[in-house]
């Protein structure tokens, strides 16, 4: 840690040069490995295309995420949930939930207010559109959730429109909703078709839409709650400090 001495500084520079050389070697090896990779580049596109009619959606990426590799996506939602819990656990007390005595601080700029006022509903609408369009075009639960969370972040900066985060159980319910919907769907599919995560083919689209809606809510809530936990605590106006 102590780099004050000239000797140490020179040593640190030498270490950095060695590190840079090492990283260059790593890059070279990676490039060589990828260039020497002789396997065919076909990937799994053919298999996905062949199975697409039975997936319930028309967009291959959504089909992979919500049907063919649904287990991965469930774990991805679990990662989001864990992060939301961990950031919330290390945040200051009262950082996430809206407290009853929380009063908006001095009004921010009118420009921000009008931007939030006009843009946030539109952003939520775009989020809903992304969720819906995921069935046959790029889009889906994660894009929609990110969009809605971004709307929440934007609104967060305006004291007048700052989203209210209800205390404890409602928030936790929304956070868990996506993972729970996935787990429930997996078990229900197991009961109905006998295979874990194999939705009934005829109604697969409806299953996917239901899971995606729950996932959207969870993704948006997890991202926004995490953001709220990280933001510096400015919840009390200066006069009350």
């Amino acid at each position: 840690m102590d780099l004050a001495d000239g000797n140490d500084e020179r040593a640190a520079r030498a270490v950095r040069v060695v590190l840079a050389l090492g990283c260059g070697v790593v890059a070279a090896v990676l490039g060589w490995a990828l260039a020497a990779d002789g396997s065919s580049a076909a990937g799994l596109a053919t298999e996905v295309r062949a199975a697409l009619p039975r997936s319930g959606v028309e967009h291959p990426v959504t089909a992979v995420l919500l049907n063919f590799r649904a287990f991965d996506t469930m774990l991805e939602l679990a990662v989001l949930l864990v992060v939301a819990i961990a950031t919330g656990a290390t945040a200051a007390v009262g950082q996430i939930e809206t407290r009853p005595d929380e009063m908006p601080a001095a009004p921010s700029s009118p420009l921000l207010e009008s931007l939030v006022h006009d843009l946030v509903p539109f952003a939520i609408l775009v989020g809903a559109y992304l969720l819906w369009v995921g069935a046959y075009a790029p889009g889906g639960a994660f894009q929609a959730g990110a969009m809605i969370a971004a709307a929440g972040v934007l609104a967060h900066f305006s004291p007048r429109f700052r989203p209210q985060v209800p205390d404890r159980w409602p928030t936790r319910g929304i956070l868990v909703l996506g993972t729970a919907a996935f787990a429930f769907a997996a078990l229900a599919a197991l009961a109905l078709t006998g295979v874990y995560f194999a939705y009934p083919v005829a109604r697969a689209g409806a299953w996917i839409l239901a899971i995606e809606s729950a996932a959207t809510a969870s993704v948006a809530a997890a991202l926004y709650v995490t953001f709220r936990a990280i933001m510096p605590a400015d919840r009390l106006p200066d006069a009350q400090r």
């Binding site: 996905v48 089909a63 995420l65 991805e76 989001l80 961990a86 997890a222």
Partner: peptide, 27 residues
Amino acid sequence: TGDPVAHALVLTGIVVAVSATALGLQL
């Protein structure tokens, strides 16, 4: 076209990377 499996993997990876970054920032 693209290989949709790889695209889905990247999409998953982006979300996990964002989550890990948020956790790191919070710590």
